[in-house]
Every structure is written in structure tokens, then in C-alpha cells.
């Protein structure tokens, strides 16, 4: 019964997502949602690493930018077709992620955060200064929309919305599968205690690297989609400001939960669009929110919601089934 409810809820949500552009017929909303979905993909990547494996990377805006610039350069300068370029962009990001991960993951906790913050900054500076390749501060313009697949074109706002939605659903599905598998349990064991994980025979380095490369892959995918959606990219997409935005989406939504990244991203993107007059100063509100959330609701909206539901279920004595590792 319980599972049926959950499933119907998910289906309803999915149907709503599909019908959304048809109901509203508003390019602005469609555009905004598409953008949120792209950010959400990147946030899911960060969540896999920070939420499930316990490593807070501050370099992921950099990986997002690598994905975006790879796609941009491959399609604009190398005049490659969108689809192979998308695959290559994700691969390039993952390979860079692998190289950085091998070194970065030898450090822990604070060192890891500082190290990745600096790596992110190096990526940003290289993009900014390497004028000949990236166009420097002028950015890269004229990136094409995704090319046709047979009769399907991606020129309209709706078609791009569906394309990005498809990617998002696949990403969530893949992460769901990973989190609910032995691999996911392994990640959680590492997050809980690396020492303990090692004594039960887990190769922590190998698993952390898997999580890291995967998370850079998702960041790269999001970046590549962003480039072809917005059609213009500048070095700023790799800046710490973007990194902190993504982090905020994750924390408000709920770090280490499956629905958190989507909930947080949608909420904050929509909220900041509606507080347009605040655009420049939105951090006056969001900054304190981030700090308060981590103090009082460290599991974010989704996590706190499920905690609350669990508590209520326990109180009413209606204990059907104990909650799984990390519901949400």
C-alpha cells in the first residue's frame, strides 16, 4: 500500500513534468524549468560525492565549466555534431576528474575542501586567461542547439525542455540504482567512517574515486547541456559563485537524500526568479538561510520531511517497516 502511494506520487509528478509546457504555454517558465533541471543534474553529481560518500568538493563548478567548454569548443571550433560532442565532453570531464581525484582524494576533510576549492579556482583562471582557446573573458558564443535525431529537432523551448527532462530522469534513475545497491552501501560506509570501512575490507580509495569520477561526469553532463541550451558561455560559469549556488541548492533541498537536489534547485531557482528585484542581493537572504539550515536542519527540506514522517509513524505506533538507510 505504502509503496503504491509512493509510486503513484512519483508517476503524478512525472506526468506533471511532461504536461507542464503544454499547460502553461509560457516560454519563460519552460526556459526557467529547463535551466533548473540542468543545475539539478550537477547538484545530483555533487550529492553523490558529498552526501553519500562524505567528501565536500568545491571544484564542481570547474567541472561544470569543463563540460560546457568542451562541448562549446568541439561544436563551434571543431564543428563536431552535437551528440558525439556531448559524449566526448562528458568523457573529457571524467578524465580530468579522474586525474584530479587520484590526487585530491588522498587528502581528507578540510584539506580536501581547500584543495578542491583551489583546483576549482585554477580551472576558472585557466579558462579566463587562455584567450586563444576559450576566448577568455569575451566567452564563447554561437554554440548550436542539440542537433536533430532523425525527425526530432531541438530548436524550440519545449523540445529542449523534454530533452533536458529526459536526461534528468535518467540521472535520477541511475543515482537511485547506485544508492540502493551494494556500491551505494559501500559509499555510505566510507562516509560513516573510513577506518571502519577499511577494516571490513573495503578499498576506500577505489570507491571514493568511483564516486568522484561519477560526480564529475554528472557535472560535465550538466555543463554540456547548459552550453547548448544557453548558447553562450563565459568563464564565470566556473566561478566559486556558481559553486556556492550549487551547494546551496543541495543543502536547502537535503544533502544525502535522493529528492533533495531536485527540491532544493527548483525551489531556489524559482524563488530567486520571483525575487528578481533582489537578484544582486539574494545572498542577503540565502546566505543566512544556508547557515541556519546547517545548524538546525542539516538534512535539508527533504531529509527533515522524512525524519518528521518517521517520527510521526513511530508515535502512532504504525510501524510497518523500518526506514531504509536514507529515505528521501
Amino acid at each position: 500500500m505504502k509503496i503504491m502511494n509512493k509510486r503513484t506520487g512519483l508517476i503524478a509528478l512525472f506526468v506533471l513534468a511532461i504536461l507542464f509546457p503544454l499547460i502553461f504555454q509560457n516560454d519563460y517558465y519552460t526556459h526557467m524549468l529547463t535551466l533548473s533541471f540542468i543545475w539539478a543534474i550537477a547538484v545530483y553529481g555533487i550529492n553523490l560525492l558529498a552526501g553519500y560518500t562524505g567528501y565536500l568538493s568545491l571544484a564542481h563548478a570547474g567541472f561544470f565549466a569543463i563540460g560546457a567548454y568542451s562541448l562549446g569548443l568541439l561544436t563551434v571550433k571543431a564543428e563536431m555534431n552535437f551528440w558525439p560532442a556531448l559524449v566526448l565532453a562528458c568523457l573529457i570531464t571524467s578524465v580530468v576528474g579522474l586525474l584530479i581525484g587520484v590526487i585530491a582524494l588522498r587528502t581528507k576533510e578540510h584539506f580536501f575542501a581547500i584543495y578542491t576549492l583551489c583546483v576549482g579556482y585554477i580551472i576558472y583562471l585557466v579558462i579566463d586567461k587562455w584567450d586563444g582557446l576559450t576566448g577568455g573573458v569575451r566567452g564563447l558564443i554561437g554554440i548550436n542547439a542539440p542537433s536533430n535525431i532523425g525527425p526530432i529537432t531541438f530548436e524550440t523551448a519545449e523540445s529542449q525542455y523534454y530533452l533536458v527532462l529526459t536526461f534528468l530522469v535518467v540521472v535520477i534513475f541511475v543515482i537511485y540504482r547506485i544508492v540502493h545497491s551494494l556500491t551505494g552501501r559501500t559509499f555510505l560506509a566510507i562516509r560513516n567512517s573510513e577506518e571502519l570501512a577499511q577494516t571490513i575490507g573495503i578499498s576506500t580509495m577505489k570507491n571514493k574515486l568511483t564516486a568522484f569520477v561519477l560526480s564529475t561526469f554528472f557535472a560535465g553532463l550538466a555543463g554540456a547541456l547548459y552550453a547548448s541550451f544557453v548558447r553562450f558561455i563565459g568563464p564565470d560559469i566556473g566561478s566559486t559563485a556558481i559553486m556556492f549556488d550549487l551547494l546551496m541548492y543541495l543543502l536547502v533541498g537535503g544533502i544525502g537524500t535522493l529528492s533533495g537536489p531536485l527540491v532544493g534547485t527548483l525551489m531556489l531557482v524559482i524563488l530567486s526568479q520571483n525575487l528578481q528585484f533582489l537578484q544582486e542581493y539574494r545572498m542577503l537572504i540565502f546566505g543566512p538561510i544556508l547557515t541556519l539550515i546547517i545548524i538546525f536542519y542539516p538534512r535539508g527540506i527533504s531529509g527533515s520531511f522524512f525524519d518528521w514522517k518517521r517520527k510521526r509513524r513511530n508515535q502512532t505506533g504504525n510501524v510497518l517497516k523500518p526506514i531504509k538507510v536514507e529515505e528521501g
Binding site: 545497491s181 560506509a189 573495503i202 568511483t210
Partner: peptide
């Protein structure tokens, strides 16, 4: 139970692709 399950992980071989493809 969830704490103990992962203890047997070292005797298993399934990887990321097994996870994604179940």
C-alpha cells in the same frame, strides 16, 4: 541490519554497472 550488511561486501564482486543495470 543495514550496518552489518555492508560487512560482507568484501566477499562480493558486483560493481557500478551491476548497480545501474541491477
Amino acid at each position: 541490519l543495514d550496518n552489518v550488511i555492508v560487512g560482507h561486501r568484501l566477499r562480493t564482486k558486483s560493481n557500478l554497472f551491476d548497480a545501474i543495470l541491477r
